[in-house]
Amino acid sequence: IDTPWVVKPEEKMKFDSIFDSLGPVGGMLSGDKVKPVLLNSKLPVDILGRVWELSDLDRDGMLDKDEFSVAMYLVYRALEGEPVPMSLPPPLVPPSKR
């Protein structure tokens, strides 16, 4: 399915700069680096747990740049009052992981 990624280029740039500021190792951020950033959103931990489940597409306990963008996208939408989906809609899957 060739749908554009819902993360817009300008959002991706913002998320990428946050990603870089967190000190990725080998292009990945571990859970203990991402966790405080997500907790900072003040969203309930069960919501953040679901955000992580949906973002860590390869379930390696780390987020790469695209996975981190998915996490941030979901957090920002949740802060705007949109529910976090139970499974990742295809337009939210990064093009690099389809």
Partner: peptide, 13 residues
């Protein structure tokens, strides 16, 4: 799919 048992890779669980 949640892993059935075992260590979770989710730092929020």
């Amino acid at each position: 799919q949640y892993p059935a048992g075992g260590s979770s890779t989710n730092p929020f669980l």
